[in-house]
Amino acid sequence: MSHAADVRAHVPIATGRSATGIPTARLAVWWVLASEIVIFGGLIGSYVMLRLHHPHWAEEASHTNTVAGAFNTFVLLTSSLAAVLAHQAAEARNGPRAARFLGLTILGGLVFLMVKSFEWSNEIAHGFTIFRDVFWSYYYVTCGLHGLHVIVGMVIMGIVAADARRGRNLHRVELIGIYWHFVDAVWIFLFPLFYIAK
């Protein structure tokens, strides 16, 4: 479609403006995170109040695998380090190096998901399914929603890394990094909520 190309040739004015001083894309990421805070906040808040209401949930929580949870925290922290190093490389305009670090971050996400699936299949095999108790419903739904964010982050990061390797759209390395750190921060709270407090 030739006219589509013409439209793209028209340089958009709105996207380039920055009345606040924060680049438009980064500002949008902050708002995305703001809306995510309330979504996770609603879920975690509901969990916490029911948890405080039901003393027997502590007993249920003792069946979660603390070692696996701790290892996953370690994995996500490490992947966050890789993401921030990718951002540093992108700022130095070193696209290939940024792409390599992003690759490490994706690998971290993959390890996280593998540990998670090991954990879940183990728990389900021992009868701790989503139906066993509302505690387990919250466990699977909250961690599942978080896992969904990990998967989405990995897919977007793959696209950004492919671009960065060719030196294109390097500013996006920072943006996906911010999102990834947020996913990491959510896990930092899920870990004590589901794995430590027993």
């Binding site: 902050w30 708002w31 703001a34 805070i37 309330v38 906040g41 808040g45 509901s46 916490v48 109040m49």
Partner: peptide, 16 residues
């Protein structure tokens, strides 16, 4: 911005 959103979550918690 982020703290206001956290504040809304706290309001929700306190009310419910």
């Amino acid at each position: 911005i982020l703290f206001v959103m956290l504040g809304f979550v706290l309001v929700m918690f306190a009310g419910i």
